[in-house]
Amino acid sequence: MKKMILVMAVGAITTAVKAQDNKLYLKGGYNLANVTVTGDGAVDDARALSSFHAGLMVDLPIGAGLLSLQPGILYTGKGTKVENGKSTDASYFKATANPQYIEIPMNLVVNLPLADKESKFFVGAGPYAAMGIGGKNKVEGKVFGVGFKSEEKIEFSNDDPTTTGTEEGAGVGYMKRFDFGVNGTAGFAFKNVLLSINYGHGLTKINSGSDNGADDKLKNRVWSLSLGISL
């Protein structure tokens, strides 16, 4: 299923760029990832985790170009961290979870032309779907000066998102493989360069297993800064 989704996404993007006014961007940049810690969606800033994203995005003008559809396919890091104390203290603890996803955003944006006519400011929003493909859980620290460190691969559940009412392959310590949410995006597109900021707001809990008051709170939140180069 993972291979089928990737082939379909790349094929759709390749087909889309054949039209004359469409632009294909090689895109990458910095992520500041986090997860919610309360039922109303609040996050703890101290848990923010630095990561990155890279991939392709297409700008598809609609009609006279006032609107554009911006689909893409990205390799992107999400996650969070928990840290107590400082690395210079006698006792210190840090745990990070950094799941890696293939993400397919589909944003609809409004274009506002700038003075040089080849540049524009854009702002918009849309949904995204993401599939977990890797990542690591890391723990490190010290207890009265004695250091410890461990690292393990993140395990994803094998739940099929087309099924309802049942989550296959769930278990303690597993993350849900599929993440769905919405994006807000804004930026500037020049002749061959694109600069943008994006906020991804996950709508599905990231822990596998049955719903409960604790793991229902954990949903992805990611701020991204991107640089795109037109191909």
Results as ranks from 00 to 15, higher is better:
Ile102Lys: 06
Val58Gly: 00
Pro99Thr: 06
Ser87Ala: 11
Arg47Ala: 11
Thr80Ser: 10
Gly39Trp: 01
Gln100Glu: 14
Phe93Glu: 11
Thr36Trp: 05
Asp59Thr: 04
Thr76Ala: 13
Leu112Lys: 00
Phe93Gly: 09
Asn107Trp: 05
Asn111Glu: 11
Ile62Met: 15
Glu118Gly: 09
Leu108Cys: 06
Lys120Trp: 00
Gly77Ile: 03
Tyr101Phe: 07
Gln70Ala: 03
Val37Ala: 12
Ala64Asp: 15
Ile104Tyr: 01
Lys81Ile: 04
Leu67Thr: 14
Ala33Cys: 02
Tyr92Leu: 05
Val58Trp: 00
Ala64Pro: 04
Asp116Ala: 15
Val35Ile: 13
Asp40His: 06
Leu74Asn: 08
Pro99Phe: 06
Gly85Arg: 14
Met106Trp: 11
His53Gln: 10
Lys81Leu: 09
Phe93Thr: 12
Lys94Met: 03
His53Asn: 10
Lys81Cys: 08
Ser119Ile: 02
Val37Ile: 14
Lys78Gly: 02
His53Tyr: 05
Tyr101Ser: 13
Gly28Leu: 12
Tyr75Asp: 03
Ser50His: 14
Ser119Met: 06
Ser68Gln: 05
Ile104His: 00
Asp44Tyr: 10
Gly29Phe: 08
Asp116Thr: 11
Lys86Asp: 09
Asn111Tyr: 01
Thr88His: 06
Asn107Ser: 10
Phe93Arg: 09
Val82Gln: 04
Gly63Pro: 07
Gly77Thr: 05
Asn111Asp: 05
Gly85Ser: 09
Gly65Cys: 08
Gly55Asp: 10
Leu32Ala: 07
Ala95Met: 07
Ala95Asp: 05
Leu114Glu: 04
Ala46His: 12
Ala95Pro: 05
Lys81Ser: 15
Leu114Asp: 02
Ala90Ser: 14
Gly65Gln: 14
Leu69Gln: 02
Ser51Tyr: 01
Glu118Ile: 08
Lys86Phe: 12
Asn84Ile: 06
Lys78Cys: 01
Pro61Met: 12
Asp44Gly: 11
Leu74Val: 03
Ser50Val: 03
Tyr101Gln: 10
Ser119Phe: 01
Ser51Trp: 00
Ala46Tyr: 11
Ser119Pro: 10
Lys117Phe: 00
Leu69Cys: 08
Leu67Cys: 14
Asn107His: 11
Gly65Ala: 07
Gly28His: 11
Thr80Asp: 04
Ala33Thr: 03
Lys86Ala: 13
Leu49Trp: 01
Gly79Ile: 00
Leu49Ile: 02
Leu49Asn: 11
Leu49Arg: 09
Val43Met: 11
Leu32Trp: 09
Ser51Leu: 01
Lys120Gly: 00
Asn98Leu: 06
Asp59Asn: 09
Gly41Lys: 05
Leu69Thr: 06
Gly41Thr: 04
Gln100Ile: 12
Asn84Tyr: 12
Ile102Trp: 14
Gly29Lys: 03
Ser68Lys: 02
Tyr101Trp: 01
Thr76Pro: 00
Thr80Gln: 09
Glu103Ala: 12
Lys78Pro: 01
Gly63Asn: 13
Leu56Ile: 13
Tyr92Thr: 03
Ala90Gly: 13
Asn34Ile: 05
Gly85Val: 15
Leu108Gln: 07
Leu66Gln: 15
Met57Ile: 10
Val82Thr: 08
Pro71Thr: 12
Ala33Gln: 02
Asp45Asn: 14
Phe93Leu: 07
Tyr30Thr: 08
Met57Ser: 13
Ala46Met: 10
Gln70Lys: 15
Thr38Tyr: 09
Leu56Val: 15
Ala54Ser: 08
Gly41Ser: 04
Ala42Leu: 04
Tyr101Val: 10
Thr36Asn: 07
Leu108His: 12
Gly85Gln: 13
